[in-house]
Each structure stands twice: as C-alpha cells, then as structure tokens.
Simulated assay, not measured.
Amino acid sequence: MAHLLGSPACMDSLRKDLTDLQGAIVDVFSRAGPVRFPSWKFPDRAACDLDMVALLEHYDHVPGDPEFTQLAHAVLLELVIDR
C-alpha cells in the first residue's frame, strides 16, 4: 500500500470523496443548521468552519515534490476522517 502514497489517481479519488462528503454535510446543515464541534484535524477550529475549497487547493498532487505530495495525500485521508 505504501507505493500508492502520493498516487495521482488515489488523490483524485480522495478529492472527489471529500467533495461528495462536503456536499452531504452542506445539505444537512441547510436543514438542521451547523453543528459546532471541533475539527479532528484542526482542533482550534469548528469542523463546520473549515474552508474545504482552500484545503483541497492547497493539498494537491505536486509532480516535482514527492515529499509534499505524500504529505498532501495523508492530509486528504485525515480530512475524510474529519468530515
């Protein structure tokens, strides 16, 4: 599995999953209102206040930087847990 860390295909799939999860969360929030709980990944912020667009833009595959790409992959996995 370690050979998949930083894989563009895996990261793209995670990004799509996060987008789908965020869409479901926004749908629930529109009906019930935001739920104020700390984010698992960013405990200093409320989970409902995370700017997912900015996070998805920042943590992306960078072809010339495998170290950052692997970090970004791990962060995307953590954001799935956070959602």
Rank of each mutant, 00 (worst) to 15 (best):
H73E: 03
F42C: 10
C48D: 06
E67L: 12
S13C: 08
S7Q: 04
R15T: 11
G64K: 09
L50C: 03
V53E: 15
S39T: 08
M52A: 07
S30H: 10
L55Y: 10
P66C: 05
D27I: 03
R83F: 14
S13Q: 06
D49S: 13
V53H: 15
D20Q: 14
E57Q: 09
P8V: 06
M52S: 02
D17H: 09
L56Y: 05
D12P: 01
P63G: 12
Y59A: 00
G6Q: 07
D65H: 05
L14A: 05
A54D: 03
A2F: 10
H73Y: 10
H73I: 05
P66A: 08
L50W: 02
A32K: 14
I81Y: 15
H3S: 09
L5V: 14
G33E: 05
V53C: 13
A72E: 01
A54R: 06
P38W: 04
M11H: 05
L4D: 08
A24D: 14
D65K: 04
D27N: 13
V26M: 11
E57A: 11
D82K: 03
D27R: 09
T69C: 12
A24P: 00
I81S: 15
P38T: 02
C48G: 04
R36D: 14
A32V: 13
V35H: 02
R36F: 14
Q70A: 09
D20E: 13
D27Y: 07
C10M: 11
Y59W: 10
V53Y: 14
L77C: 09
L79K: 03
E78T: 09
A46G: 07
S7T: 07
L76E: 03
V75P: 00
P43M: 00
E78I: 03
C48Q: 00
V75T: 11
D49E: 15
S30I: 07
V53K: 15
L77G: 07
A72L: 03
L56R: 03
A54Y: 04
I25Q: 08
E67Q: 13
V62I: 13
Q70L: 06
F68Y: 11
A9H: 08
P8W: 12
G64Q: 10
D65P: 07
K41H: 14
T69G: 12
D51H: 06
H58E: 05
L79N: 04
D60M: 04
S13D: 11
L5Q: 08
A9R: 09
Q70R: 15
S13F: 12
P38F: 05
P43E: 02
K41S: 15
E78W: 09
R36A: 15
H3K: 14
A74T: 11
R83W: 12
V35A: 04
P8Q: 10
I81P: 01
G33H: 10
F68V: 02
G64C: 13
M52C: 03
L79R: 06
P34K: 11
L50H: 00
I81W: 15
P43F: 02
